[in-house]
């Protein structure tokens, strides 16, 4: 039988901190949802209205149809999906090479990949602007896919290296004995076991690309090619911020990432745990 002391410890050391942390994390989300469902006049008023009554979807309709979030959403989804596929594909092979092969300069290569993460993106804007301009890629989503892939690949390759290291090399050796080529062994033995790692990599890269603002803002020069983060910034005017519209836009921007994390969370948690302890 559990003692009173056991339950007190359980409550104060486990449940209460969990509840407080949960409130701390979820309150901004609740506030955003609440704001998105209210008329503008009700948002900034006292006493504070905690539950929209009546609730309205007018902000979502306006954001989607009138402000152009449908277009921005479509662009963001396209850039993110293509980028994620490319990032994941290349990070498998980079991670594999870093994990399985010994070659001269491996540590220097790793170090250089890490240092790319320390470069402020703003520093790269003007050179990249000129390069993409010369390549006729300004106002083209391909420029975003290229730069997002480049910026995300280093981190995700290093992440993938940890996952590959966790797969016993004996499995590949067994596949080779059975007649598999090196590539075949990777596809038939390593990649299926890499599933949690793939999920973690895809999730990280998706969120990174989905939220990317600076490059999209600088390289896209027509509104038909803008992405969601730019659309969100445009809701804020010189002296006026339409809070309801901004909140509705944020929720729209949140949905794909939220759905993805809900669906992939099991793989994501196991993937992160697997990657965290492998050298």
């Amino acid at each position: 039988m559990k003692t009173k002391s056991y339950w007190l410890k359980r409550i104060f050391l486990l449940y209460l901190p969990l509840v407080l942390i949960m409130i701390f994390i979820l309150f901004p989300l609740y506030w955003t949802v609440r704001t998105s469902l209210m008329y503008e006049g009700d948002i900034v008023t006292l006493p504070i209205i905690y539950l929209p009554n009546p609730a309205t979807f007018v902000n979502f309709v306006t954001a989607w149809d009138a402000v152009g979030f449908d277009m921005y959403f479509r662009n963001s989804l396209f850039v993110a999906m293509v980028s994620v596929v490319i990032i994941t594909f290349f990070s498998i092979f980079t991670g594999y090479a870093l994990s399985r092969f010994k070659f001269k300069g491996k540590n220097v290569f790793m170090f250089m990949m890490l240092t790319t993460q320390f470069l402020p993106a703003a520093m790269l804007i003007i050179p990249l602007f000129l390069i993409f301009g010369n390549m006729q890629l300004l106002d083209n989503h391909l420029s975003l896919i290229i730069i997002n892939t480049t910026m995300q690949l280093s981190f995700n390759s290093i992440l993938m290296r940890g996952f590959v290291s966790g797969i016993p090399i004996e499995l590949e050796e067994a596949a080779s004995i059975d007649g598999c080529s090196k590539i075949g062994a990777i596809f038939y033995t390593v990649i299926p076991l890499l599933l949690p790692g793939l999920v973690a990599t895809a999730a990280f890269s998706f969120v990174g690309v989905w939220n990317e603002f600076l490059f999209a803002f600088m390289f896209m020069t027509s509104r038909t090619n803008f992405t969601l983060p730019i659309g969100l910034r445009m809701v804020i005017g010189e002296y006026v911020a339409n809070h309801g519209l901004l909140a509705a836009g944020s929720i729209i921007a949140l949905v794909p990432a939220l759905l993805m994390f809900v669906y992939l969370q099991k793989h994501l948690v196991s993937g992160l745990a697997a990657g965290s302890v492998k050298g």
Binding site: D65, A66, V67, G68, D70, M71, L77
Partner: peptide
């Protein structure tokens, strides 16, 4: 399911919007 879902979103946004290409930025 994941790429299917995301692909469906892409299609939905491509078909669902009734604003003209390049439209947007309008208040109701």
């Amino acid at each position: 399911f994941v790429p299917f879902l995301l692909g469906a979103m892409l299609l939905a946004t491509a078909c669902g919007g009734n604003t003209p290409a390049g439209g947007g930025g309008t208040a109701p």
